[in-house]
Design a protein around this nucleic acid. Structure first.
Lengths: 149, 149
DNA sequence: CCGATTCGTAACTAACTAAGTTACATGAAA
DNA sequence: TTTCATGTAACTTAGTTAGTTACGAATCGG
């Protein structure tokens, strides 16, 4: 895993969970898919559990499963549950009395608000089911193991 | 300066430059506005010079000035010249043969492309002149030094 | 020409963030 | 009651960015 790849790593994991809905996958198995550590996986998707996107169970036969059908899980929800901001730039005031800064922040905050609305709207139209369908299409086309490397 | 505040810091600097178009401002003066180091300023806005947004001159009376009128400088250009990406998430392949990863990356890259198009379009409608006007409006309203801290 | 000024840039340090790791408590199933 | 799996805290490591120091190159005034 590298910097800011949490969204794509999480989607990868979720597609695998969608692809094996009948059984729970352990964080060790999930970690294997994205070549990382089970603890990192648990930490990363802990927020998804709180959002009801996934469920986890302990002990024998425990692990992770989707909390609802893939077509009811949008990328907007997933991104939100990860707690990442779509827009990275900061607008923290650093010279509270400066009117130039106030003007800059006002314009930038307006833009951020509008941008977040736009992006969330787009992401809310893409579901985990779309991703899974895309994966299956590729699988049928090439006919090769989903983890050939 | 803190993390990812480069866009807002740069805008702050540029508004000051737009506000004193007749004379060059040194990187020392510009650094004072955003409470940082002259070298950091030079490094940060070096990209703007290459994009023609600002010009710099050395020696006595040297410093920085806008490269063209504020209403001809859009936030899209500035953001681009800073070399920052608007969308932070990574889609670097990490398991090249994995079809799940390929599906995830395909969807995410599509989204990123569309999102960048949308955001750039919005930013291209905001100019440095808009920011300067907003600053002047605040200044006239409150009637206070632009750097009262 | 000389000295002051200012940018350009390399090299280093410090601070911060996120991933990776270890360790162990908690809970569930066989 | 043993084994397996999550939950989470604490620590380590790696990578990024801001900040700093230093100095060469260019420009201007005298």
């Amino acid at each position: 895993m590298k910097r800011n790849s949490r969204l794509s790593s999480t989607l990868h994991i979720l597609v695998h969970m969608a692809d094996a809905p009948e059984r729970a996958l352990t964080s060790e198995q999930l970690a294997g898919f994205i070549h990382t550590n089970p603890v990192v996986v648990r930490r990363t998707i802990a927020g998804l559990r709180e959002a009801g996107i996934v469920t986890s169970s302990r002990g024998h036969g425990g692990g992770w499963q989707l909390g609802r059908a893939p077509d009811k899980i949008s990328l907007a929800e997933i991104s939100g549950a990860l707690g990442e901001t779509l827009l990275p730039f900061s607008t923290e005031p650093e010279s509270p009395g400066c009117l130039v800064e106030q003007a800059v922040i006002a314009v930038l905050d307006d833009f951020r608000l509008e941008a977040e609305r736009l992006l969330t709207e787009r992401l809310s139209h893409i579901t985990l089911a779309d991703l899974t369908a895309d994966f299956r299409r590729r699988y049928d086309l090439i006919g090769v193991s989903s983890h050939a490397v």
